[in-house]
Amino acid sequence: MGGIDGKLGPIRKGLLEFLILKIVSTNTVYVADILKRLSETEFATQEGTLYPLLSKMRRENLVDYEWKESEVGPPRKYYTLTAKGKSQLAELNQYWKQINSTVNQLGS
């Protein structure tokens, strides 16, 4: 298992940012929402990974957040895509489709 996972790990890692852009684009989300949506997939991750990544994406001006009151407990950060984030998502989507068809074309 270790051998194949060594090859799959980098692929997952490379796609994580793309998927986060996708998730944030559908709604205004809170970190727990992102974790929950990813938890049902191969891309399950944790706060310890997600927060540093979101901070980096915010520094690159792809996402932004605002503090919102929650029904329970202290206010939370809700993330949204910036214009730059939206255009990067569109580019990544385009590229992903391209890669997909290339992979499919090159045989089974």
Partner: peptide, 14 residues
């Protein structure tokens, strides 16, 4: 355990 170790650069090498 739920929060997980803080990964300084999630996109870096293993």
């Amino acid at each position: 355990h739920e929060v997980g170790p803080v990964v300084a650069d999630p996109l870096a090498d293993e």
